[in-house]
Simulated assay, not measured.
Amino acid sequence: MALRTRREPAEGLYLAESAKVIRRALEAGHRPRSYLMAPRWVDELTDLVQDAEARGVPVYVGEPDVLQALTGFHLHRGAIASMHRPAPRDPVDLVAGARRVAVLEDVVDHTNVGAVFRSAAALGVDAVLVTPRCADPLYRRSVRVSMGTVFQVPWSRIEWPEGVQTLQRNGFSVAALALRDDAVSLDDLAADPPERLALVLGTEGDGLADATVQAADLAVRIPMSGGVDSLNVAAASAVAFWSLRAR
Rank of each mutant, 00 (worst) to 15 (best):
A209T: 04
A127M: 04
D90N: 13
F172N: 06
R247W: 06
A216K: 04
D65N: 09
G207T: 06
P223K: 11
F172V: 10
L13N: 01
A28L: 08
G114D: 00
T71S: 01
G148Q: 08
V213A: 04
P91Q: 08
P91F: 06
L208I: 04
A25G: 13
V66T: 13
A122Q: 07
Q214N: 11
L201S: 06
I158H: 03
H84I: 11
V184Q: 12
A183D: 12
G207A: 02
Y139T: 05
G207E: 02
E204N: 12
R133G: 00
V128P: 00
R99T: 15
G78A: 06
V200L: 06
R77G: 03
V228N: 07
P193Q: 08
E159M: 11
R40T: 07
G207M: 03
W160A: 02
S237G: 14
A176D: 00
V108P: 01
N112W: 14
V95Q: 00
G97S: 10
A178C: 04
E27D: 15
V153F: 07
R133T: 01
P58D: 12
D217R: 02
L3R: 08
S119D: 00
L104Y: 07
V150A: 02
C134T: 15
L199V: 15
A127F: 04
G12D: 07
R133V: 00
W242Y: 15
I158Q: 01
Y60V: 12
A115Q: 05
E195T: 14
L208F: 00
V49K: 04
Q214G: 09
L218D: 04
R77A: 13
P154N: 13
R157M: 02
R196F: 10
T203S: 10
D210Q: 07
L94V: 14
A96W: 10
E53G: 08
L167I: 13
V108H: 15
E162G: 14
V153L: 05
G62F: 06
S243N: 06
R100F: 15
V103W: 05
D192E: 12
L231A: 02
Q214V: 14
V92K: 03
G72I: 03
P91N: 08
V49F: 11
P86S: 11
I222N: 01
G202E: 08
Q50I: 08
R180G: 09
T131L: 05
A216P: 15
S142W: 04
Q68D: 10
E8S: 13
A96P: 05
R133H: 05
L129G: 05
K20C: 00
V145E: 00
R89W: 08
Q68S: 09
V49R: 02
D192S: 14
S82F: 06
V42H: 00
V92I: 15
F172T: 07
L15F: 03
D51M: 09
L186I: 11
S185R: 12
R24G: 00
G205P: 07
H74F: 04
R169G: 09
R144S: 09
L45K: 01
Y139K: 12
H110N: 01
